[in-house]
Design a protein around this nucleic acid. Sequence first.
DNA 1: GCTAGCACTCGGTAGAATTGAGTGCCAACA
DNA 2: TGTTGGCACTCAATTCTACCGAGTGCTAGC
Lengths: 349, 349
Amino acid sequence: MARRASAPATDDLDARKATILEAVVSEHIDTNQPVGSSSVASSAELGVSPATVRSEMVSLEREGYLAQPHTSAGRIPTDKGYRYFVDHLSSGVLGAAQQHQVRDFFATVRGEVEDVLEQTSTLLSQMTSYTAVVVAATHAHASILSAQLVNIDARHQLLVTVFSDGSVVKHSLTPPYDVDFETCAEASRQLNALLIGTTLETLVQVPSRHDHVAHLVRDAVAALHAQQPATDGDRVFIGGSSRVADSFDGVETVRKVLSILEQELLVVTLVQDMLDRGLSVAIGTENGFEPLSTCAVVVAPVTIDGAPAGAVGLLGPTRMKYQEAMAAASAVSQHLARHFGGDEEHAHH
Amino acid sequence: MARRASAPATDDLDARKATILEAVVSEHIDTNQPVGSSSVASSAELGVSPATVRSEMVSLEREGYLAQPHTSAGRIPTDKGYRYFVDHLSSGVLGAAQQHQVRDFFATVRGEVEDVLEQTSTLLSQMTSYTAVVVAATHAHASILSAQLVNIDARHQLLVTVFSDGSVVKHSLTPPYDVDFETCAEASRQLNALLIGTTLETLVQVPSRHDHVAHLVRDAVAALHAQQPATDGDRVFIGGSSRVADSFDGVETVRKVLSILEQELLVVTLVQDMLDRGLSVAIGTENGFEPLSTCAVVVAPVTIDGAPAGAVGLLGPTRMKYQEAMAAASAVSQHLARHFGGDEEHAHH
DNA sequence: GCTAGCACTCGGTAGAATTGAGTGCCAACA
DNA sequence: TGTTGGCACTCAATTCTACCGAGTGCTAGC
């Protein structure tokens, strides 16, 4: 027997094995069925008999690229098999129809950033029939353009903060004493002076006096800076969650995946983690969430003027159409960057 | 044969028929299986033989309350059967565990209105294992407390409007000319003077001059008032959408329902429509959306200081546990009203 | 090293037989 | 007249069997 198979996971396959693996993966993606040796032999252009393919397949199985649902069935790819497949994927081109779709969308879309991103997630989902995720970077580094304290009534004030990236954040204050209009206005003035030009990471020197104005100012600054933890605003947009229903077979899987998608914090963590690790595709267990072990996630970062501004992603079954998904994600990511970035001289995001 | 059956849908049944119908409905809700005459005869306390029950059942079937999946199977309720059931339902009481859950939640919940509502939808979903919907009334009638125009850069301004119900809305302006800081500040001042105290329904007299300030003011007012159509902000919160996966049998149904839930506008329409028609439960086709014909929706309005402030709802299969669902919805609705309303002397919503 | 040939495995399907829950009807009964 | 036990009947679901065939692993020969 060939001894060289003992070299562990060199990740570089024999040209023929590579062809066979790729044939198996793409056929299985198409059909969602185990792939047999004969169909590989005829589809792939290696002039070789099924028997030869078979012996290569057992080798590929030993090395962990393929698996057999049961004896006398064809092979299906393992996560490792998919991984090899996407690593050696020629970057595909977006279909003409979809190119139009993206172009049209960005040519006609209007409205606030949040609306655009929400609709973008729907677009991406429609283009691919997978569930789409759009994540916008936090505005931790954006500077404050305006901070205003509005008197709702004597016991309720609202701090409204506008950031240089165009985002607006509000914080309720409920002081244990009555606040009159003048006090509020004065506090608002002081907050403006104090905060404008700072970022959320800047330390701010708050007044230490004991009057109501100073109290309000302190509470407002505290509320603003306390926002850090986790759920930092509506920065995640999920489109086409109904697609999970036809992406997966078992009802239980569908439930699990939906359940993950509901927790937006998890989603942003997942995407962020992938970006940090420099991954553009996470297959099966690579994504780190056990309930997502039958999923694959494709992400494309959105970069505006060289700075990371967020990411778009797609979630589907491990047997997803990677080329299409990656092409769509990267196209949308680029359009998004152009829409909010450079060519129009924005400062948005 | 009893001729009186020809009276069309008097909707008032013989006491015995009522008992039988109720037994069938509640058993079917429990088991999700057709119910046979013998199990009804033994469970319900009418000392009567299966044969008698059977003859009553054919009558109930003729009148449209029950249906037979096929000959020689038990009966399942029709929408009309469920309707009778809920119409004659003694309003149940919330389980002790759930009472605690609600109480604890509202005792500890903090943060902005939107966050609270979002979390409320999750709470309601967890209490019932159905998908929950929380709808907040629009602020069409709220008056404007503050309107501020912030200069993002020369070509981008942001109109930030604060309403008396505590909501904050932003609108981007992108004038075709450069705006300097002073112009923006002046426009902001004028907008404030113009808009404070008005509602979105108020007609506002805008300046007709042709300078940049007047232009900005006009554009800002136009943007603000244009917002009416449909998607008026993030006023819908959906919790537990993963629950649809185990509420329905067919994958296709799951997809359809999720697909509806994605379109928040449809959801708010549905809920609003039910409130308008004075319905608290919509069963099957009653809700007007064909894809939801196997669903039931329970809603409870949220009323603060006598004014409608929104609604909470639950979506499940027609064989949902109506008593529990209604009790949960109404409890949460009341807590919500108390939380934002009277007892704390808020003006929120 | 490749291939044709071959025996073998085992999931999927089709058909027949069986089961059993439940019905509809009827005749008898109070 | 309303109720009931009895009974024949229906039909989905289950089980069993046989069988097919796609696909494998192995081996002998090219």
